[in-house]
Design a protein around this nucleic acid. Structure first.
Lengths: 136, 136
DNA sequence: TTTCTAATTAATAATGATTACGATTTACCT
DNA sequence: AGGTAAATCGTAATCATTATTAATTAGAAA
């Protein structure tokens, strides 16, 4: 996902183009790490000292619902990053030091077989945590 | 994990036997669902109206650190349940209606192969969410 | 370009989960 | 039974997140 794609999606869904929104998206476009609402706010307030949490959270929710951002829970806090470009389903390794991610091309659901008969599966989560080569 | 095992572990590590601790453990021993701190407190306060959050959280942390309870994050809240008896590594299906779990005998790490060379893997999370046959 | 209106934002308060702290009580060792 | 460290209580503080209301702004229409 890049800036242009993100704005196309936003426009298609009737969202207005604001400088705050654009800067949030730029931040994500230039950072492959997972960021928290606070991370965002801290950076944004350098350019927009009046930026408020409401704006951050509202836009994060919008972006996630439109598939522009993806979200995960790390040590009790919500983290966000730009949706991967990959067109096929995959999962992530997450570096607990620098926050960078690496795509894992496999999905455990493939080897589930008949392990859950009569169960209705809604979704699943598979993540690997550790240190990337640079941080090791 | 059952009550006796839990107390053995606690005693081995120098923890005292208190009625609060025992009731928390009994609750978990009789409930296969994941429970939140609030769930616990609500039930406990019927017998011990003076029970405080501090006691609940302190004991939950103790139990998790000793491997008596296991913990996961569900919709932004910490949830706890008795550690499984199974001796071999496994994962969980979690019913989003009733909270009951079912063990999944497979681990995605098995099919990882050389997908993460030079990465240091610390841990991983694999959970499946949906509805169990009873709730469907 | 000006005007209008709904979307967006700012400022701040409220909420809910979790943690912290000083005072009191309790388990358990001798 | 007495001493002591652990455990608990009562309550306040903290942190992330959500809600509220008033002011501002983007984009459409005149």
């Amino acid at each position: 996902m890049n800036l242009t794609n993100a704005w196309n999606i936003l426009k298609e869904n009737g969202f207005k183009e604001t400088s705050k929104r654009n800067q949030i998206l730029e931040l994500f476009a230039n950072d492959e790490r997972y960021l928290t609402a606070r991370d965002l706010l801290d950076v944004m307030q350098k350019d927009y000292p009046s930026m408020s949490y409401d704006t951050v959270y509202r836009n994060l929710a919008t972006f996630v619902s439109l598939g522009i951002l993806e979200e995960t829970e790390l040590s009790g806090e919500r983290h966000f990053r730009m949706q991967c470009e990959s067109d096929h389903h995959h999962h992530h390794f997450i570096c607990m030091d620098c926050g960078k991610i690496k795509e894992i091309p496999v999905c455990p659901m493939d080897m589930l077989g008949a392990a859950l008969p009569a169960y209705e599966i809604a979704n699943h989560k598979f993540e690997i945590y550790g240190k990337c080569p640079e941080c090791k």
